[in-house]
Nucleic acid binder design. Structure first.
Length: 530
DNA sequence: CAGTGAGCGAGCTTCCGCTTGACTT
C-alpha cells in the first residue's frame, strides 16, 4: 500500500531533549521534534575510532590532513550511532528537515553535520530562536533561513586549531615530563593563571603598620587620618607586592607600634571637635540576571558550592521545567520574562520598588554567543521560591531561590544610600594636630536590595560599606571620647583563586565556554602530578 | 621438557565543545 500523504512529517532537530519536548508541544501535528543530544560527529578521539579505510593513513589519528588544506576527518561519535540511526529512520517519512540547533557557532556546525550525515533528499531549513514561547517558535518556523557557512567554517577552524595544539603538545609533555598529562588552548592558560597567582603570593612581602581609633561616647568610632598635616597610611597605600607604593612613600606617615602607642598616650581622653561634615547620596544599580559564569560565582560565594555541583543542580531544575537553560553567556531576558519579573517585584515589594522602565543589560563577556536567554525562572509568570518549596530538594530550592531573586532584582529600582563623612580635630598634649574621620552610610531606599542583598565577604567587611548611621552633629561640637585604641595591621598576599573566581577570570579573558567552565577545573585537577 | 625471566616491541595516553543518560567507583 502506498503511503498516504498525511503520513509525511516535518522533522525538526534541536540539541536538547528537554527543548524537544517543549517545542513539540508548541508545533503540534505534522511536526516531529527530536534532539541530536549535542554534537553527533567529531574528529576521531582515539585509534579505535578511525574507520578501516583510514587506518593506514598517517594523519588519521590526528584527524587533520595538514598537507591537504587542513581537511578534517569526521567520524560519528561512538555513543551517537543509535541516535543517528534513529534520525535516519525518521528521515524516511520526512518531507522537510528543519534544523533548529542553537543559534551559535557550535549549533550551526551541529546543523551542518546533521545535513552531512543524513544526506536529505527533501528541502532543508534552518530555524533559530532565542526564547521558547509558543509565539517565538511559531514565528521562527515561518521565518527560516539557510545554513551560515561562515559560522560553520569558524567552528571547523576552532576545532582543528584546538586539536592540533592539544594533540601535538601533549605527547611532547609525555616524553619530557610524564605520561598522561596534557596541554591545550584552555587548560594550559587556566593552569598558568594559578601558577602566576602563586608566584605573586611567593613574591609578596608583608608590611606592618599601625593605626588609631577614637571610641566616642556617641557610639561610633573615628579613625586617625592625619598627624600634623601628614596622612596616616591606609590599605590603599600598599601595592600588590605588599610594599608601600612608590607615590605614597614621601607623603604618608607609617606608624609603628611605639608611634601608635605614643599617640594614644598623648591623646588620653581629649575630646573630638567637629571640623567638617559631608553628606553625599549614592545610588546602586542591580546586577544583570545570571549567566552560567555569574551563577557559578554567586553559588560559590553564597552557598559554598563548586562549579560542578552548581551545574548538576541547575541541570535538574532545567529538566524539570523550573528554570531556563543553564549554559548561557547572555544577560538578556525575553519581553515576557521582564514582564514576569516586574509583576513579581510589584506584588511582593510594591510598585515604588520596580524600575521605572524595563531594564536591559549589556553583556560584557568577550566572544559572547548569546544563543540563549539569561538563566531565570521558567514560564510566563515566575513561581515564588515559597510556592515551589514543597516539590524541590533543599539544594534545588537554594539555587532556585538565588536565581529567582537575582532575576526579579534585575528589574527593580536602584537602591539609594546616603554616605556621611565627618572630620574631627584633636590636639595631643604635646601639641600635635590630629584629624580623625568617621564614615557612615545609610540605606534611604532599599529598591532592589529588598530582593537581593549585597553579600558581605571577608574581603569587603572591613571597608566602610556597611550600614552605619552617624548621629546628628553640628560644626564645632565637641564629642566625648571614651578611649583611644591602636591596632596593628599586616598587608595580606593576593588571595588564591577559588573555582568561581577562576571561572570569572577565564570568562573575562574569553577562554572557555559556559558548557566547559566546570570541566576545565576538573581537568586541571585530575591530571597526574609529579 | 616445562616453567621462568629477561628483553623487546607495540599500543595507549591527549585537545575543546555540544548534549544526556548508562555505566561503574
Amino acid at each position: 500500500m502506498a503511503k498516504a500523504k498525511t503520513d509525511l512529517i516535518k522533522l525538526v532537530i534541536v540539541e536538547s531533549p528537554a527543548k524537544a519536548r517543549k517545542i513539540g508541544g508548541y508545533l503540534g501535528d505534522g511536526y516531529v521534534v527530536e534532539a541530536s543530544v549535542g554534537h553527533i560527529r567529531d574528529l576521531p578521539q582515539r585509534a579505535a575510532d578511525i574507520p578501516k579505510e583510514y587506518k593506514k593513513i598517517a594523519w588519521a589519528k590526528e584527524g587533520v590532513d595538514i598537507e591537504n588544506d587542513f581537511a578534517p576527518l569526521y567520524v560519528i561519535n561512538p555513543d551517537k550511532r543509535a541516535k543517528v540511526a534513529e534520525l535516519q529512520a525518521l528521515m524516511k517519512n520526512a518531507e522537510e528537515l528543519i534544523l533548529a540547533t542553537d543559534e551559535d557557532r557550535e549549533g550551526e556546525a551541529i546543523a551542518w553535520h546533521l545535513v552531512e550525515v543524513l544526506q536529505p533528499k527533501v528541502p532543508i531549513k534552518r530555524m533559530v530562536f532565542n526564547e521558547i514561547t509558543k509565539e517565538a517558535i511559531q514565528e521562527a518556523v515561518e521565518n527560516t533561513r539557510d545554513l551560515d557557512y561562515h559560522l560553520i567554517d569558524a567552528q571547523e577552524t576552532r576545532r582543528v586549531l584546538d586539536r592540533l595544539f592539544g594533540y601535538r603538545l601533549s605527547p611532547v609533555l609525555w616524553k619530557k615530563v610524564m605520561p598522561r598529562i596534557s596541554a591545550g588552548r584552555v587548560q594550559s592558560v587556566a593552569t598558568r593563571l594559578i601558577v602566576e597567582k602563586e608566584r605573586e603570593r611567593m613574591a609578596f612581602i608583608s608590611s606592618a603598620w599601625w593605626d588609631l581609633a577614637a571610641v566616642t561616647a556617641l557610639g561610633f568610632n573615628a579613625r586617625l587620618l592625619e598627624v600634623d598635616g601628614k596622612r596616616v597610611a591606609a590599605t590603599s597605600d600598599f601595592g600588590a607586592d605588599g610594599a608601600v607604593k612608590e607615590k605614597s612613600l614621601s607623603n604618608i606617615l607609617l606608624l609603628d607600634e611605639a608611634g601608635a602607642r605614643g599617640l594614644v598616650e598623648s591623646l588620653k581622653a581629649t575630646p573630638l571637635t567637629v571640623k567638617s561634615m559631608e553628606e553625599s547620596p549614592r545610588t546602586e544599580r542591580p546586577k544583570p540576571p545570571f549567566t552560567t559564569s555569574t551563577m557559578q560565582q554567586d553559588a560559590g560565594s553564597r552557598l559554598g558550592w563548586g562549579a560542578q555541583i552548581t551545574m548538576r543542580i541547575a541541570q535538574r531544575l532545567y529538566e524539570n521545567g523550573y528554570i531556563t537553560y543553564m549554559r548561557t553567556d547572555s544577560v538578556n531576558l525575553s519581553a515576557q520574562a521582564i514582564d514576569a519579573a516586574r509583576k513579581a517585584a510589584k506584588s511582593l515589594y510594591g510598585a515604588d520598588h520596580v524600575a521605572d522602565a524595563p531594564r536591559t543589560y549589556l553583556g560584557k563577556t568577550k566572544n559572547a554567543q548569546e544563543a540563549h536567554e539569561a538563566i531565570r525562572p521558567a514560564g510566563e509568570t515566575f513561581k515564588t521560591p515559597g510556592e515551589l518549596a514543597p516539590e524541590l530538594s533543599r539544594d534545588e530550592f537554594a539555587l532556585y531561590d538565588l536565581i529567582w531573586k537575582r532575576t526579579v532584582a534585575s528589574q527593580m529600582a536602584d537602591a539609594k544610600k546616603m554616605q556621611m563623612r565627618v572630620d574631627f580635630d584633636a590636639q595631643t598634649n604635646d601639641g600635635k594636630a590630629t584629624i580623625f574621620r568617621a564614615n557612615g552610610s545609610v540605606i534611604t531606599f532599599a529598591g532592589f536590595l529588598a530582593a537581593y542583598d549585597d553579600i558581605v565577604t571577608d574581603e569587603n567587611k572591613d571597608e566602610e560599606t556597611e550600614d552605619k548611621r552617624l548621629p546628628a552633629m553640628t560644626l564645632g561640637q565637641t564629642v566625648k571620647v571614651n578611649e583611644y585604641t591602636c591596632e596593628g595591621h599586616e598587608t595580606k598576599p593576593p588571595a588564591r583563586y577559588t573555582e568561581p573566581t577562576l571561572v570569572k577570570k577565564l570568562e573575562e579573558l574569553g577562554i572557555g565556554r559556559p558548557s566547559t567552565f566546570a570541566s576545565i577545573i576538573q581537568t586541571i585537577q585530575d591530571r597526574p602530578c609529579i
